[in-house]
């Protein structure tokens, strides 16, 4: 079987549904395991910070949320271009399914950040570069979700929505740098995926695991959303009733 055949099979509604159904339990299991390990290692095993004491532990939720919110946006960009250039319909389903997940994680990153900011900076909100660009990211996610439902003709509308995703991805770095140039209070990155981190291994290892856990969680949510959308769209197809009958048994 050539790679192209595999690709066509995976991106067809039926093939995708079966593929997603096979993946979902494993993703859920992986997510639960990494989440359990990361939470225990982060909240109990890791020592308290010398300065922030136990309050620093919110890093294990805050950083993964922010990381995955950006990760999803980059995935959205790739999917939007795929949809615009090669007209892969499943890529459009991905954009629709992933945008709300990305928006939710962006919101969570903002909320956990402000919960962390209150004891450390003494304020719930500060007009700092990273907070501001994360807030603008939330607005852009909202724009994508609003565009999804704005057009009377769904097929036509998907082109414009995907075009907006691409426009946003061109603008996001500009926004990020202009805002960073404008004002910065947020601490610099203490954690880098490649190269030495400025954080002790006993603290950084749970963080890595939590990054994986949140990525798996996001993948799980996106796959569930996508499968629902595909099933809803093809609800009259014969394979859907066959698939449902098999699930009921």
């Amino acid at each position: 079987m050539s790679l192209w055949t595999l690709w066509y099979r995976l991106t067809s509604p039926k093939g995708f549904t079966y593929f997603a159904t096979a993946c979902i339990p494993w993703l859920a299991l992986g997510c639960l395991l990494t989440l359990a390990y990361g939470l225990v290692a982060g909240l109990y095993v890791a020592p308290a910070d010398y300065q922030q004491e136990d309050a620093f532990r919110i890093i294990y939720v805050h950083v993964p949320c922010a990381f995955v919110s950006l990760l999803i946006y980059s995935a959205l960009t790739v999917a939007a271009i795929t949809c615009l250039v090669w007209r892969v319909k499943l890529a459009n389903t991905f954009v629709d399914a992933a945008a709300p997940v990305g928006a939710a994680l962006t919101l969570l990153a903002l909320v956990t950040g402000s919960l962390w900011g209150k004891p450390m900076w003494g304020t719930w909100w500060i007009w700092d570069a990273r907070l501001t660009s994360e807030l603008l990211l939330l607005f852009i996610y909202c724009g994508i979700m609003a565009l999804k439902n704005a057009f009377p003709d769904k097929r036509q509308g998907s082109v414009f929505k995907n075009a907006f995703v691409v426009i946003g991805s061109v603008n996001l770095p500009i926004i990020h740098y202009s805002v960073a140039w404008w004002n910065t209070l947020h601490q610099g990155s203490t954690f880098t995926l490649l190269g030495p981190s400025k954080i002790a291994p006993v603290m950084s290892q749970p963080l890595t695991v939590m990054l994986v856990a949140f990525s798996l969680y996001a993948a799980l949510m996106v796959l569930l959303n996508m499968r629902n959308a595909v099933l809803l769209e093809c609800q009259r197809a014969r394979w859907v009733s066959a698939w449902l009958a098999k699930r009921k048994r």
């Binding site: 852009i140 565009l147 946003g168 926004i175």
Partner: peptide, 21 residues
Amino acid sequence: LTLSADGRQLLLQLLFLPLTV
């Protein structure tokens, strides 16, 4: 982009203002 969208005016401000930052 939003020429044939419903509720164009309100949609435009949501899309336009963040990108002008």
